[in-house]
Simulated scan of single mutants.
Amino acid sequence: MDRITRIYRKLVFLTWFLTLDLIMFGAFVRLTDSGLGCPDWPGCYGSTSPLGSLPEIDQAVRTMPYGPVSLSKAWIEMVHRYVGATLGCLIIAILYMAWRYRRHLGRSPALATATLAAVCLQGAFGAWTVTHRLMPAVVTAHLAIGLILLGLLTALAAREKPHRALAAAARRFRPWVGVGLLLLSLQILLGGWVSTNYAALACMDFPMCQGAWVPPMDFRDGFSLIRALGELPSGQAISQAALTAIHWTHRNFAFVVFLYLVPLAWRLRAEAGVRGPATLLLCLLLAQLLTGLTTIFFQWPLAVAVLHTGGAAAITLVMVLILVRLGTAGGPPVTSAR
């Protein structure tokens, strides 16, 4: 492998890994209520770090001791922004190499270009998350675009990772995997909606919810999109019935996704070129089920809640990896040499 190809691949894998980490750290920001730790953007009270904003942060804490601003929350939020900026710079470097050495690498730069567009959009929604005061629709969209970005980078990395050849007949699984990815995406959006509305503890028992299979719920208010955090479009506080509808929908749709993906992953294990990812998918689905149940039984512990978000991201990247590999079915194996 020549030097340019080696550098490009290392850059792609580093950026892919950092994106996965950033998604999990974004969950940590949200779950620690640090999204408004610095209530302006891109700086913190106009400074590049909380060190330059100590008087403003101290005043905010004195004014509202249990409010969204504190020194620790400011650092959590700003570290998230620093890592996001680093990610953007790495993707620009990938785009440069993808265009500059496109003939040498033997790859179209279209996917790298789409990745840059996604990270720019992600940055915009990151800013709107702050300026719209954690509006649930904006925060959920921020998560969704982050997962799209992870999917694009996974596709970039999958093209570079060696794997065994797949028979042409394996292509028949692509539509099934595509449907599975759509179901998974919907479930992740529902999970994001639970998190951004702080509805994770709306049902404290399992398998029933509030002692009933179908508890009192308000789907219209629960899934109204254009509203502020904790409020309805009318300005009234969101009801417990609305929060229950959000939680109940996410919980029960999880079984639909599980019942679809588990048999699919088991069947994919028969294909040598995707046996490893399919086995990993089964393990991740089981782990995701366990972390989801743990958040209920142990009242949403922070570490487990972050792992639950990370599990959703990991399942997404494995699904994308399988989809990309199935796209090479009938062709030669992908090798590390060029």
Rank of each mutant, 00 (worst) to 15 (best):
D2G: 15
D2I: 00
R3Y: 12
L11A: 11
F17Y: 11
T19M: 10
L22Q: 14
P39V: 09
S47Q: 13
D58N: 13
D58V: 03
A60G: 09
R62D: 12
G67F: 06
V69W: 05
K73R: 15
K73H: 04
E77R: 05
V79E: 08
V83W: 04
L95M: 13
W99M: 11
L105D: 02
L105F: 09
G106H: 08
A110L: 15
L111E: 06
C120T: 15
L134Y: 10
A144Y: 07
L152K: 01
L152A: 06
L153R: 00
A157P: 02
A168S: 11
R171I: 13
R172L: 06
G180H: 00
L183H: 03
L183P: 00
L189Q: 00
G192S: 08
S195R: 04
A200V: 11
C203K: 09
P207C: 09
C209V: 04
M217F: 05
D218G: 07
S224V: 02
G235H: 08
Q240C: 02
T244R: 14
I246G: 03
V257P: 02
L261D: 02
W266N: 05
R267F: 10
P277N: 11
C283V: 10
L284T: 01
L285Y: 05
L286A: 15
G292N: 04
L293P: 06
P301E: 11
V304S: 10
T309R: 08
A314S: 15
A329M: 08
P333C: 10
V334N: 08
R338K: 06
